Amino acid sequence: MCVDRRIDRPGSANLGARLESDVTTLVQSGRYPSRSEVLRESARLVEERERRLLALAAAIAHGLADADAGRVEAVADIAERLTANYQARAESDVS
């Protein structure tokens, strides 16, 4: 069975030699049916990364706002509570 592995090249995407080679390899290997599909998938991945970065920035802003408002707990207090919790679990597993 012969599968068409065309590599269409829109003039608006200049990727440079290394990325062009990567795209060509992906198409020729059959992983993607065309250069356009590789570029679309790349754009989707960039969009997803940008969404995650925005969510991270929002979470950081929220955490900083909590810290500024005094809604924080000292790391030593958290570590002490976690240590006691894990020690209690370990002791109950031994029993």
Rank of each mutant, 00 (worst) to 15 (best):
A61Y: 05
A57R: 15
L53T: 04
R18V: 14
A55N: 09
L45I: 07
R52P: 00
E41F: 11
A67R: 02
I78N: 02
A76P: 00
S29H: 11
E48M: 09
L56F: 13
D68F: 07
S12Q: 13
D4I: 11
L82I: 10
S12R: 10
R81W: 11
A59C: 01
A59S: 13
A67W: 05
L19Q: 08
V38E: 11
S42Q: 08
E80L: 08
T24H: 02
A76G: 03
D77M: 10
R9L: 11
N14H: 12
V23Q: 00
D93M: 12
G11N: 09
G63H: 08
I7M: 10
S12V: 10
A57N: 05
R9N: 15
A65N: 08
D68A: 14
S42F: 12
V23W: 03
Y86M: 07
A69T: 04
G16Q: 02
N85W: 06
A43I: 06
I78Y: 03
R89V: 13
E37K: 14
L64M: 06
L82S: 07
S21L: 10
R40L: 14
Y32V: 12
S21G: 04
Q87G: 02
P10I: 08
L82G: 02
V38D: 12
D22M: 14
A58L: 15
A59P: 00
V38F: 12
A88T: 10
Q87M: 06
G70P: 11
D8S: 01
A84E: 12
N85E: 13
A69P: 04
R31T: 15
N85G: 01
G70H: 09
R35P: 00
G70Q: 05
V94W: 05
I60S: 06
R49Y: 15
R31F: 04
S12K: 09
A90F: 14
A74I: 03
A59W: 03
R35K: 04
A58E: 15
A90K: 11
A88P: 01
L39R: 01
V72C: 11
L54H: 04
S21A: 13
T25A: 15
E41L: 06
R51S: 06
R81E: 09
S95K: 07
L54F: 05
L19E: 02
A67P: 01
G30A: 05
C2N: 12
L54Q: 12
Q28P: 02
A17D: 08
L82K: 09
L82C: 00
